[in-house]
């Protein structure tokens, strides 16, 4: 169509084992989102194969991909992507609507459970515009969790948040990981990567580095050691 063909990813090959917490790092345009879209079954690679939980994803059709996204994957976006004028609870219920095996009663129970897990039990009937950025992202995490997926994917999920709230969000991811969830987390912030067990570094669509993190930081501790925002303002004004 006269457009330049961009090979967003080339010759990338790696395995992610159940229970890993992997961060994908790289500069802007290095192919992180493209990678995550493929892992999330939103996009199919033009070549190569992707085996998720024993299934050859590149061979599946649109409906089968939709079903995999629904049952096996939980997605967390940088800009939360919550439905406006829809309560937190209904937002979390959303993926369950597309799973016919979940009854309306179960749907509500699962959603409440997920909201409880991210500490938002008292905010279930709030609309997104009544929640802070960090709370909105927690709703989004609850939504990703509700269907009990085996893989949680996050694309710069802390990108719109201040450092302290970022650490709070990372502590939730670490807790989920401790409970056995496999997590792939895209970020370009090096401090975020220190909370994961492994880091993939992309540059210009190539996998440059695959390193295991031997010194995993505790996000909860980092969060609690941070001064609150009001105090920062106070110190700056002094």
């Amino acid at each position: 169509m006269g457009e330049e063909v961009v090979h967003a990813l080339r010759g990338v090959s790696f395995d992610i084992l159940p229970g890993e917490f992997v961060t994908i790092m790289g500069t802007s345009g290095s192919g992180k989102t493209t990678m995550l879209n493929i892992l999330g079954c939103m996009d199919k690679p033009s070549g190569g194969e992707y085996i998720l939980d024993g299934e050859h994803v590149e061979k599946l059709n649109g409906n089968e991909l939709a079903s995999i996204r629904n049952r096996k994957i939980g997605f967390v976006f940088q800009n939360y992507n919550l439905l406006s004028r829809t309560t937190a609870l209904e937002n979390v219920e959303l993926p369950l609507l597309y799973n016919p095996k979940v009854s309306p009663k179960e749907r509500r129970e699962l959603a409440l459970e997920a909201l409880n897990l991210v500490g938002l039990s008292d905010r279930i009937s709030h609309f997104p515009n009544q929640l802070s950025g960090g709370q909105q992202q927690r709703v989004a995490i609850a939504r990703a969790l509700a269907g009990n997926p085996c893989l949680i994917l996050a694309d710069e999920a802390t990108g719109n948040l201040d450092t302290k709230t970022s650490y709070e969000i990372m502590s939730i991811f670490q807790e989920l990981n401790a409970k056995g969830k496999t997590i792939v987390f895209v970020t370009h912030e090096p401090d975020i990567a220190t909370f994961s067990s492994r880091t993939l570094l992309l540059r210009d669509g190539l996998l440059r580095k695959d390193s295991v993190n031997s010194n995993i930081q505790n996000a909860r501790a980092a969060f609690e050691s941070m001064p609150s925002i009001e105090m920062v303002h106070l110190e700056e004004s002094i």
């Binding site: 649109g62 409906n63 939709a66 996204r69 629904n70 997605f75 993926p95 597309y98």
Partner: peptide, 16 residues
């Protein structure tokens, strides 16, 4: 459009 994209990302089939 964004809502549709989101629903699809969360597992809505084209038919839904």
């Amino acid at each position: 459009t964004r809502e549709i994209g989101l629903r699809m990302a969360l597992g809505a089939r084209p038919r839904d």
